[in-house]
C-alpha cells in the first residue's frame, strides 16, 4: 500500500489534513504529517520531512508527498536528497492541491491503487467542481 506524507507550513495544518484524510480511510493508509519548522513556528523543515518519509518508507514500498505552497516543495526535495540513495525513487512529489489531493489519494491508496493512479486521481481532484 502507498503511504502519504503531508507537508505544510503549519504543523496544525499538516496534522489537520492528515486527520481529514485518515477519517476517510479509517486508519488503513499510513499517513504522516510533517508541518511547520516545529510545532509553533510557521515554515517547512526538510529534516522533519525526512523523518516522516523514513517512517512512511518503513511501512510502505512507495510514498506520495502532498504539499501546500512556497518552500514546501523545496524542503520536500531537500528531504528526499537526505534519504539513502536507493530509497529516493520510492518517493513521489504530488502536483495535487493539498486538501483535496490528500483526501482523494488516501481513498485511492486504501483500495490498493499504485502510485501513478493515485497521483493521477489526486491531480484530477483539483478539477472536481466544488460549487455546483
Amino acid at each position: 500500500m502507498v503511504a502519504l506524507v503531508i507537508v505544510a507550513h503549519s504543523a496544525k495544518l499538516a496534522e489537520g489534513v492528515r486527520e481529514l484524510a485518515a477519517q476517510m480511510t479509517q486508519g488503513r493508509v499510513p499517513i504522516f504529517a510533517a508541518g511547520g519548522v516545529d510545532d509553533d513556528i510557521l515554515g517547512t523543515n526538510a529534516e522533519r520531512i525526512r523523518e516522516a518519509l523514513e517512517a512512511a518508507l518503513a511501512s510502505s514500498q512507495e510514498v506520495l508527498v502532498l504539499m501546500d505552497l512556497g518552500s514546501a516543495v523545496l524542503s520536500a526535495r531537500m528531504a528526499i536528497d537526505l534519504l539513502p540513495e536507493e530509497q529516493r525513487s520510492r518517493v513521489r512529489l504530488s502536483q495535487a492541491p493539498l486538501v483535496e489531493g490528500a483526501v482523494v489519494a488516501a481513498v485511492e491508496a486504501a483500495i490498493g491503487k499504485g502510485l501513478d493512479e493515485i497521483e493521477a486521481s489526486a491531480v484530477e481532484a483539483a478539477r472536481m467542481p466544488k460549487v455546483t
Partner: peptide, 18 residues
C-alpha cells in the same frame, strides 16, 4: 547546513542549507 535546513523554515532553509 544541516542546522539551517531544519530551522530557517522558508525557501532559505533548503537553499542556504544546500
Amino acid at each position: 547546513g544541516m542546522a539551517l535546513v531544519s530551522t530557517v523554515g522558508g525557501a532559505g532553509g533548503p537553499l542556504y542549507g544546500t
